[in-house]
Design a protein around this nucleic acid. Structure first.
Lengths: 329, 329
DNA sequence: TTGGATTATTGCGTATAATGCATGAATGGA
DNA sequence: TCCATTCATGCATTATACGCAATAATCCAA
């Protein structure tokens, strides 16, 4: 008796369709058909009457389902509870994050995390592509910005604040923008978000929000590249505060529009940990989430960034390329 | 998650030994070892600490076992109950019976039984060899005589009476035996029961039992063959009453020692249905047992025999070889 | 203390089972 | 009436399960 067949049976009873269950479980319908047939042969009972387009449970199917379904739930729960008892966090945690945020925030925290769980491997995919966690076999993703209602579970790590900056040389030459509308008459460096447009949002002290399309000749899909262009005097750039913490400190970039809250696409931006809506979370995922939340408690992203750099220095032995903020302030 | 692995785990927890569980389940120890390892990998938890000669559950193993064991029981029960609900008796009933009894009693009942359960196939092995039901994959066996305490479950079908008969011509020539001891001075045709000896038992009206070794030059392992030899005047034969019902009626064999109960090996002889001591009986076995018990209720074996012959005639269409009692009386 | 029997582990090879592909029959809705 | 979709199934491929054999370790008896 294979519990996979039992789980398929339970799903078919719930959905009344082989094809629907096949799509849900990402198998072909013949797999579902054979699972049910196998179960029926084992039981010597027809569980489901089916025509070519309909599935209807038999009385025996109903009886079996009533008895099996809670058992499957309990089996899954027993498995989850026992996993949590594990005296070892093992396996490989597969996570994906954006390149910049990954390099700057996530990767520097990995040495401490992996020291804490010495038998856990980590596979971290740094990509700015949109990754489908379930399809591509990831345990979780770090996502920035505003989340779509994608059916995934998200844990908020920290708020993200966007700031608009420019180099002093740019401001000396072109003047300082004062009103949000001024960005239509400045050179702006834009990060294009697929499907979201490129409007910059301004919210004043009264809560009034303006959404303005910046004048732009240059769009780059890499935040660090945008920052470097801004430092070179090519225009205004909006990016996450943590990205330019050092430059603001050094003065190579200067904040503008300080009287406004600014954002792209949404003021409700944050760094999120996103994972599939599975009911029983693997322990390795659980401990990673707990670790990250602990790191971000009562801590701005920039503070965490700097702390992460220190940690990286303390742990680092391999020739891991580190972001610019490596020195101790 | 494979419930076979769960069952193995439960057994290992009970027995504390891979090797013992392997013997019980008739697999090699590496199969048990891999089942446990597979489960541990799936859970990310060590369930059992083991040295090369010892297995001890971990705390996690205990927790998991406490939760799993009742679920396995309930899964098995759900399976059994659902099997019983089957609106169809399907599959193949595999049974084994002795050649003579099978041909005379069991086989003639099969047409009616199979008509009643049209989707059930029957595989009937007619053999006088001692068959191991479990090893040889039978659902049940029909056994005659006195049962060993073999751990199998037995349902009594009908008592078996043994009688001693001879042909009139033999008696005319050699005289009629009067006392049990006389069998030592007659020619006796003997059915050798492996491991049981060949003594004939006599119990008189006072309940006194004598066990006497008959004089014998001919031993045959087939009751019908013995009967034919007796009819041919070769001597006394002890066999089941049902075997010689017709001959007694026709007068081709004559009963002797009528004042005694007679038996081989044991007076507690019967026809039994024997099946493995499994907890949940397959429905096909259940219905066969019920069918046979119904046939033998308030019915001597001989009466059932004759009724079975009539049934065989009514149903028979194939060129199935039938026993001698084919005519209607 | 030593040796032998037994246990658990694991590499390897083979056989079997699981799964997807492709096709077909049937059904229901447009 | 036709088309899209569903369920069933033969076939081929791939993955898995299992036994064999060898090894290391352990425990018990001499």
């Amino acid at each position: 008796m294979d519990t996979q067949n039992l789980q398929i049976f339970v799903e078919v009873m719930k959905r009344g369709s082989f094809a629907a269950v096949a799509r849900e479980l990402d198998v072909v319908p013949s797999t579902v058909s054979r699972a049910i047939t196998s179960l029926e042969e084992e039981l010597g009972v027809r569980l489901l009457q089916r025509t070519t387009r309909k599935v209807k449970p038999t009385e025996a199917g109903q009886v079996y389902y009533q008895r099996i379904e809670p058992l499957i739930e309990e089996l899954n729960q027993a498995r989850s509870i026992t996993r949590d008892l594990g005296d070892e966090v093992t396996g490989t945690l597969r996570l994906t994050t954006s390149v910049t945020f990954g390099n700057s925030v996530i990767v520097p925290l990995l040495p401490e995390f992996m020291a804490k769980y010495p038998k856990l491997d980590v596979y971290c995919d740094l990509t700015d592509a949109v990754v489908d966690i379930v399809d591509d076999g990831f345990d979780l993703a770090v996502r920035l910005g505003h989340l779509n209602d994608s059916g995934l579970i998200a844990t908020r790590l920290t708020d993200m604040r966007y700031v608009i900056t420019a180099s002093p040389s740019y401001l000396a030459q072109y003047g300082r923008p004062e009103q949000p509308e001024d960005i239509q008459h400045h050179q702006c460096l834009v990060f294009p978000h697929t499907g979201l447009g490129t409007d910059w949002l301004f919210r004043d002290n009264n809560g009034e929000i303006k959404s303005i399309t910046p004048n732009s000749r240059l769009q780059l899909t890499n935040a660090l590249a945008l920052k470097e262009c801004a430092r070179a005097g090519m225009g205004l750039v909006m990016c996450s505060e943590w990205t330019v913490t050092r430059e603001l400190y050094e003065g190579s970039l200067v904040r503008v529009f300080q009287d406004y809250d600014t954002a792209m696409a949404s003021f409700d931006s944050a760094a999120w940990l996103v994972y599939p809506s599975r009911q029983y979370l693997p322990l390795k995922v659980r401990v990673f989430i707990d670790f990250m939340k602990e790191k971000f408690v009562n801590c701005t992203l920039s503070e965490c960034l700097i702390r992460g750099q220190k940690t990286m220095q303390a742990y680092s032995q391999a020739d891991v390329e580190t972001p610019a903020l490596a020195e101790d302030h």
